[in-house]
Every structure is written in C-alpha cells, then in structure tokens.
Write a protein that binds this DNA or RNA. Sequence first.
RNA 1: GGAUUCUUAGCUCAGUUGGUUAGAGCACCUGCCUUACAAGCAGGGGGUCACAGGUUCGAGUCCUGUAGAGUCCACCA
Length: 853
Amino acid sequence: MLDTKYNHKNVEEGKYSYWMKKGYFLSGDKSKPPFSMILPPPNVTGKLHIGHAMDVSIQDIIARYKRMNGYDVLWLPGMDHAAIATEAKVVAKLKEQGINKYELGREGFLKKSWEWKEEYAQSIRQQWSKMGISLDYSKERFTLDEVSVKAVNHVFITLYEKGLIYKGKKIINWDPVAKTALSNEEVIYKDVEGAFYHIKYYIENEDKYLDVATTRPETLFGDTAVAVNPKDERYNYLIGKNVILPIVNKLIPIVGDEHADMEKGTGVVKITPAHDPNDFEVGNRHNLDRIVVINEDGTMNENALEFNKMDRFEAREKLVERLKKENLLIDIENIIHSVGHSERTNAIVEPYLSEQWFVKMAPLAKKVLENQKDKEKKVNFVPKNQEKILENWMNDCYDWCISRQLWWGIRIPAWYKDGKMKVQVESPGDGWIQDEDVLDTWFSSALWPFSTLGYPDNTELYKRYYPTNVLVTGYDIIFFWVARMIFQGLEFTNSRPFKECIIHGIVRDKTGRKMSKSLGNGIDPMDMIDEYGCDALRFFLTTNSSPGQDLRFDVEKVKSTWNFINKIWNASRFTLMNTENLKEINLSNLSFSDKWILTRLNDTIKAVTKNMDKYEFNNAGSELYSFIWNDFCDGYIEFSKFNIEKESTQSTLLYVLTNILKLLHPFMPFVTEEIYSNLNIKDAESIMISNYPKYDSNLVFTDTINLMKETREFITKVRTIKKDNNIKKDAKYEFISSNDEIKLLISNCLKLTNDNILKDNKDEYTKLEITSNTKSLKNNLIYYYKESMDEKNKLIEDLNKEKIRLENSILKREKLLSNPGYIKNAPSELIKLEKTKLENEKIAFLEIINKLK
RNA sequence: GGAUUCUUAGCUCAGUUGGUUAGAGCACCUGCCUUACAAGCAGGGGGUCACAGGUUCGAGUCCUGUAGAGUCCACCA
C-alpha cells in the first residue's frame, strides 16, 4: 500500500538501478522495428544545466513512448571532448596549482585532460541517472574514442582528396588567450564602449592630411595603404599619391577601392591586410603587403617599434598618448560598438592572418539545399519554420576553419618533411612530423550520428539504426551542429542523418532573461530534483511551452506540478484501497458513470497519442492534466463512492488508473513505476515494458457523454444557486428525476438526505425551482426555505440579470440563423447545434418569466 | 540592412485545417477539516485576443500595414 503522502525522494530511490539491472534500457530486440536517437553529447566541462534537463527530458519521453509502443529503441549516449572549452578549464585548473601548460608538455597535458574527462564523465552519468533517462549505456561513445577518431580521420582524408579540405593563409578569428583559431560560430559579438580615434595621415609633400578614423589604432603599424572611394569627389584626385604613416613615418599609397564607404566615418579608411578580413580583400586587389603586428598572445611584435611586447590594449593607450603629443590625433569620439569575443575564454578576438585548415563549404551546402527539396529525403524540422534558418545559413556560408592550436582533440592527419606534405593517418616514415594542430570539436560532433554506430565500417549497428529517427536539440545549436551533421551525413552516408529534427527553445529565468554565469540566475536541475523530484521537473520542463518557444523557469510552477503528482498519488491510494479484493478487471454491467469515464479515457488516449506523435508535449500534458484532475478525480472518483462495492466500479477505477499511469509514464517515469508496482492486477513486471494504451472503440459510449455532462452541469447549477441564495443544509426539498441512476448520483453529490424531503405545508415556504430540461435529462429540484426580504430581492435581481443575458443571446442566435450565408456555408452539424441551443434558451427564458411572476 | 519569433486574464502560458459563451496554472473573493488528497474540496470574479484596415456568412486564428519586445545572420573604418 502507498504511503499517505507523495514523497518524491522515497519514490525515486532505487528505481533507476532497478531498470538498469533489468536491462530495460538496452536495444537490440530484432523482433521489433528499430527506433534510434542519438543523445546530443554534453561537453565534459561541467554540470548539466537546466537546458540539458529539458533536452534529455524530451528525448526520454520519446524513447519511453516508442518503447511502450513496441519499438526496439536505441538511445545512444555519449559525451563531447569540447576541445577549446575543456582545454581552457584544464589550463585554468593547472594554473591554480601553479602549473603551466607548456612546461607540462603535450603528453603530460593530455594525461591531465583525460583525468579531467573521467571525473566529469562520471558526474554527468550520475546526473543522467537522476534525470531518469533511459539511455543504452552499452553503446556509450566519446568523441575522442577509437571509433570516433577512425571516422574523423576517414572523413578528413576523403574530403582532402576531394579538394573539399584545404590549407590556406587567411584572416581568421584568433583567440589570444587560448592561442588558437576559432570558427565564426565561436565568436560572440557584444556591444562594448570604445572609441573612434581620428588620426592625421599627412599627404606626401603637402601640408594637408587625411582624417582617418579607426577603433583599433594599434594596428596602424600594419597599415599598407589608405583607401578612398573612387567616386568620392572629396578625395578621388588623391588616388595614386602617398600618405605618411604616422609614427612609422613611411610612405603608403592612397588607393581607390569600393570598400571605402563615402557615407561612413570620414570616407577614408586605413588598410591593414593582416588584421582585417575586408582589408585582406582590398590588399589582394591592390597587391599590398601583409604586415602582422600582433603576436599569438595578443602582445605587439617588433613591427610595433617601441610598443614591442606590450599588450595590444596597453599599446593602444600608449600609442594614442604619443599621437596626441605629436599633434597627430584629431579627436577621440566615444562610441558603443560590437566587438567579437571568444565564446569560451571571453577574450576579445583578433582578426589575424594565419595559415589554417578549411572546409570548402559551397559544394557541401549546395547538396544540402538540393536534398531539402526532396520530401522523402529531407530532414523534417519540428517546428517546420526552423528549416528556413538552416537554409539561410546554407545559402551564404563561408569556409569553415577547422584547425585549432590546441592539444586536447583529434590531431590533424597531415605530415610534413622537407617542405612536403602528406595527408594520411600513419606516419609516412622517418623524419615526418605530424601537424601540431587538432580539429575543431564540431568536426567530430558533425559525424556523431554515424560515427557512433561504427561508420566507416558497415557494422550491424549502422545497418540497423542509421539513419536515425529523431534528433532533439535547441535552436541555439543549429549552426554549430545540426547543419554540419546534415552536410557531413549527406556527403558520406548519402543520407540525412536523422529523419526528424526537433528544435526546442531555451530555458530562461523567471523574468525572461537568458541564464548565465555572470548573472548568477542559473538553475541547477539537481537542486530542483532534490526539492520537488525528477518527475515534477520533467513534467514542468516539457509541458509548459509550445514547440520551439522559450520557457520561463518558475519554481511556483514546478511546485504546482508537484501538487498534481500528489493528486495522482492520492487518487491512486483511493483506488488501491478500494480494489484490494478485486480478482480481475471485468468491464461489464457498467453504470452511466463507468461508461462516461471510460469514454473520456479513450478520448484522452486518442488526443494524447495524436499529440505525442506530433511531439506536442504541452498539449498532451494539458489533456492528461484536465482528464486526471477534472474528470477522474473530481468527477468519477466522487461518483464511485456511491457504488464502491460494485465490481464494475472497482474494475473501472483500476482500469482507468492503470491507463493513466501508462499515459503519464513517459513524462513521470518514477512515480508511475512506483504506483504501478503496487497494483494487484497488472500486465507487466514493470510499467516501462508494459504496452502503451490504445484507443478501444468497445469502451466508447457516445450517448453517456452528454448525459453525464448535463448531470455534472446540473449539480454545479444547483450548488451555485444554493450558494447565491444562501440556502442552508437543512432546507426542505423535492426532487424528481427521469432516471433512477442519475437521481441517486445527484442526490448523493448534493447530499439530499431523506430527512429533508418536504412533507408539511408547502405554502409556508419560499420556493426555488431548479430544472435541467435538456434532451437526455429531465431533473427537477425544488428547494423550500424561509427567506428574508433581502434574499428575495437578490433572487429577483439575479433572475433579471439572467433574463437579459438570455434575451441578448437569443437575439444573436436568431440573427445568425437567419443569415442565408451562414445557412449555406456552415457545416450542418453546427447549424443543428445552434438550433437546439436556441430552443433551450427560449425554454429557459420562459421559465424565468414565470418565476418572476 | 536581411531573416525570424512573439504581443491573449494581475502574472506565466495554451489555443488544431477559420466554426459553441476564448482556456489552464498561479494569484484573488466566498464557503467547507465531506473517511484519497486543506499541498485539498465546492462555488465565484476577472480578457475590446497590441493597434488599424482587409478577405469571409463567420477572424484570437488568414492577408496588408503600424507600434512594441526578443532572437539569429550580416556590417561594425
């Protein structure tokens, strides 16, 4: 028997290890159709946050739902080495211990990183178990394990041989703290305070100067030209002349280039080909030198003269001082402008000329765009509008910088000797030195849906589970990951990596702000589980926003979800207490209320299934919520109390409860398992492996729906009127009903006891008549009571109000029904319904007129 | 500049291919310790669906425009 109160800690204790022990999470039953899903691998950098909790909850709902529906579900877990993110953390940790990465050396550093990985992997698995998610751990992968590395090398070499990977010297985003290149996606633009420094660039042999504005004056040492627009009549006559580069005092040309925008700034722009992507292009057009002036660590180099070895920002200040002193500074104009920051180290990114490896994107992107046109082959996004985001990105994507100057990652399979290069896995022989760089972490994650299954080998796993069915992730990760999986999948497996891609929103704080470390507004899912239980957290996270929309985290809502579970708990207690002696579920000799709740159950099964199949868990959730609370608890359980000794009542109670538990199980695995295990009649040893409810037309009794709806409405009507008229418990009554079963039900609900049936003279009392006179029900309840003048007046007032309401409604409806367009176009059922309503309203209206007399 | 999401009750959100009187949770008011549950029960109040047009017999829902909020991309001399 269940405890008297829902205690989430007791309920959740031990269940996960029980499921694991039983092997319920394992895939591989060949007798069933396969269903596969790859878990987006979390980074081994820290704790799971509330966004992970939402992401895995959605996936577990799908996994459990599919499993209960007879699928062989493979939900494959794994983790990502997260190259730069992890390396930054390990470096920071070592620094605390007074150890420098470079002193430790590559080997030593990697050893420390693997230790870090083991520690965090363990903690992540622990958190997964707390979330109750049904992962197949026997297939767990890591982006740096052998299988993954093999796939990565294969893909790299193949793309290189196809000419889709190349090495080139370009301007890339440089992180001076991590000392590595970054892809564009890893750069976060933030608005910061800065300034336009207006500097005098004197024209050669003239006493005039050009006003050149820049936000990064320290790059001046790398200037190899200034540009003006050829159409700009203020300056175009100067093209071909030189200016004197301030401080450096060398001559650089004035070139004419479209890049110089006449509207912007002063119309004159300095050209620094080694430190700005646009300038790089200008440099190419005009054959300009590329002078690098900044070191890898963000300090200035020898080209910066006396500022050599100074940090770039200190150099900026000092340079400005000197310009001021030499009267070369015109003005400092304070501005707010957006500046690129490294996603992981938050360092200000330096555009930097450097030799790196790139993936040539255009041909790969084109393939994706083509494939998305084919309904049978495309990746179907849920919600659908997310497809556009992918297409936009594919339409104008630039080459992907994949080399990173890090140690923690998969090393690039390229070898060098005497100026020659070979791309292959093994060393070509003595004296060949492997490329020092590793690959962008997203290069390995891009292969995740198939590398985890054994690709490039044609393994059993790969054959059975690829392409995967569903991928679930947040919209914030479409470019980083989803897009790249799709083009790599198409290129290498000739297939979409997943048939459907479910995109969810992000979890925000209560006021709608993004959660972040700096704001300190993050929520630790483990704290929530501790306080309210995993089931409450999961149900909250998955049912409180529509697909693709963001979710505001509100503890109050988690709390009210807990209350909902407590309600289920108590309804289960009631059911268990009253069905202890039931031997079998026998659904015959059903009463109206039995038939009604079974019909409502089947309606709910139908609606929930439909929403589950569309991944609209919010709708499934609210269907379940209102069915369980309003119909089962507030309706059926109350009615059942009057017939509790009957076999049909007990059977119905247990049958409905069992189905409720199963419908809820994907959302609330723990509490449903606990209650299910306490049922004395059940179809499986664990709810996890029981069958999901199916719509059963034999248990649908359409005619009882209206009957019970009207009965419940009648009961509410009586209660309202009783309360409005202050009718006490001891008021006398007279009750006539067209149906004995309904009469019993209403009498019990309204507590109409035999003692109060009116026997004496009616004329001494005030009479209050309440009727339900609808198609299926004829009830007439008359209260007799003694009332004050005030009460009488209030009654008249209320009746008048109702009269006016009915008058208006009747007029409105008559107008609608006399509209020829409506009669012509509206569905006949609707018109019929409107007509019945009009009739009922007219009857009610006449009744009121009578009463007012 | 381009794309995209959103604006519905005091708050947070649902609202299906257009079709009953627009729903829920929380909050609020009233009455109840009724033997599953007071973390509950019963009853109630509260909305010009951002604004303006249009299409339609009928618009929260479709179209156009306006205002406001968010997000992404591009540009940021």
